[in-house]
Design a binder for these strands. Structure first.
Lengths: 341, 341
DNA sequence: TGTTAGCACTCAACTCGATGGAGTGCTAAT
DNA sequence: ATTAGCACTCCATCGAGTTGAGTGCTAACA
């Protein structure tokens, strides 16, 4: 059996209708809903075929049909055209905040959640390992030393260290020079014993301070390694009856709060930079088997990417979601490109 | 009518039992449950009295009784003794992370949530307005200027500024000196026009940079003004049937995610530094009228306080919660005291 | 006078069957 | 190939009846 033009139209109509109502849709509805001018009986025959082909399923006999994962997949793959959205306010709201990465991304997540009524995810940049760009030591008070470490991508880390007694201004100055000379451009794996030895050698008598500093730097770099995931609008999922079931909702909300497996999900197919749609079991995350997840990749710097995504019911408005993600993606790209200039 | 010894015992038994089961408790249960050796009929009479006194209520005729807000209040006020808890792991887990405020507090929230099975809140320090302690400008690259601003309480803020062309090393050095000289020890309200004028006067020709810098400083200070609230274990509330009702849970989870009114709640009675218990309508937050909230205040620095709290069903294990909060509070106090030394 | 046994009464929760409606599959006619 | 018609299925809903927990009241008892 083939999936001809008419079957496709009917399938499309079924999915569209189901997306709106959330109820199984019957043959009579389709008969009226479409402009095909076919009787419900004919539709029934076609629907029977579509079910046999695996695109739709019946929750139980004598109920209407709902799309299967395969049906959604077809819909997403073939029928989706990007729609430009009325997301002007997004742009404004974003530009306001475009300086502090953390706040920005949290803001993006929130914005997206408000606009789509789904739960949203945003990850920061996924560096493999950041390189040190700049280090600065300052004595803030008599007893406190402030270490500012700037990493690749202008990530700034601070660390307060207790100031060893007897460390003079000129010692600090010297340390600054030595540290910058030997560490700039290196990442974690490159700061090995020989580098450390050379550092200590060059900083006569200040070896113990160096050790502490290196700890701080190591911590700063490794802190960035587990990429942060920002979520928003988690409670939106309660708006969809099929997800607000006690057990499902509980698992989902927990995952969105804890973010244990979310990173895995967002790292999946990370070589693919377009828009990804995971339907039902296609996700690797157990708690999301009744949802669909749509993600997009944005570019922060050359070769460094982050992701934005939304989590919602299988019957989500794919067209709109994809459209929104696309515009948001390109806006983020713009912002980061501009920021770099 | 008086609340005699026996009535108190019965009330206590009712509450205890209700805390465990979550079900209205009847006279027969109490008759067996307590060691008073009274028949259910006698208990019934006493319960009738207790209801008249307002300590317990019937959800409907022919149901058992549940504690009223007034009943809980009495219980909390009179019968609660602090219990030292098996929270050794807490201490360890906390000490590991005791350097970065933000992470620490998030960690505390999580720890508390895991230990109590309720939703938890933690606020950072509530300064009125922070004073500037130290400012440092550095040229990280040819085109970028890094401003590090240290505020009272060792809150470090960074801001990247585009570097105006033609700004020389010695200009930056000069700016550093001028800024520190005139701004150290001032808070937002004290940086007025006359100070700004003096600054510009002292930094011949670099007035426009100053303006930008002051913007950055203002932003850094005001960012701290809306105190951050960290939450964890929000999904725990779904574990309690009386809160997992669709509407209630949805409102609660939303509030815990958005944190709109939480700050208000945590600021309430902020002059009172002990443990606070809000039962039902006693909270100012609408969405929490079916919950109880317990908060404790901890000290970060002399006169500067933060708060930890938990949100759960009215039938919460007050004894345990208060105990846990107390030990956690004193541990936090210790950590910050130590950090200061 | 305080306590208790006994009984009638109440009410939510549950079970069960009947009903109705939405939807299907099949068949025969067009 | 399409359609009208019909029997059939199954879920949702509603109401009646039942159950059980719990109360309030009264009368008897220590």
């Amino acid at each position: 059996m083939e999936l001809d033009e008419r079957k496709l139209k009917i399938l499309q109509a079924i999915i569209k209708n189901y997306l709106e109502t959330g109820e199984p849709v019957g043959s009579r509805t389709i008969s009226k809903f479409t402009d095909l001018n076919l009787s419900s009986a004919t539709i029934r025959n076609e629907m029977s075929d579509l079910e046999e082909l695996g695109y739709i399923v019946q929750p139980h006999t004598s109920a209407g049909r709902i799309p299967s994962d395969k049906g959604y997949r077809l819909y997403v793959d073939t029928m989706m055209q990007s729609r430009m959205q009325e997301v002007e306010q997004m742009w404004d709201a974003l530009n306001d905040k475009a300086d502090k990465m953390e706040t920005l991304l949290q803001q993006v997540a929130k914005l997206l959640a408000v606009n789509t009524n789904y739960a949203t995810l945003v990850t920061g940049p996924q560096y493999r390992s950041r390189k040190v760009k700049f280090i600065q030591l300052t004595d803030v008070e008599e007893t406190q030393l402030l270490a500012v470490i700037v990493l690749e991508g202008n990530i700034v880390k601070n660390k307060m260290l207790p100031l060893a007694a007897g460390l003079k201004k000129e010692d600090i100055l010297k340390l600054n020079i030595v540290l910058n000379t030997y560490l700039t451009g290196l990442d974690m794996s490159e700061i090995n014993l020989s580098v450390i030895a050379k550092l200590k050698e060059q900083s006569d008598g200040l070896g113990n301070v160096i050790t502490e500093l290196l700890d701080a730097i190591a911590q700063a770099i490794s802190e960035e390694e587990d990429i942060p995931v920002y979520t928003s609008g988690a409670t939106n999922i309660l708006k969809y009856p099929e997800l607000s079931d006690h057990h499902i909702a509980s698992d989902l909300l927990y995952e969105l709060e804890e973010k244990k497996y979310l990173t895995e999900l967002l790292n999946e197919n990370s070589e693919e930079h377009g828009i990804q749609v995971y339907i039902g079991q296609e996700t690797s995350v157990e708690s999301m088997k009744d949802c669909s997840v749509v993600t997009a990749t944005y570019e922060i710097e050359d070769g460094i990417y982050g992701r934005i995504g939304i989590v919602g019911p299988k019957r989500m408005d794919y067209e709109k979601v994809v459209g929104t993600l696309q515009t948001l993606k390109s806006q983020l790209d713009d912002i980061f490109k501009k920021n770099k200039e």
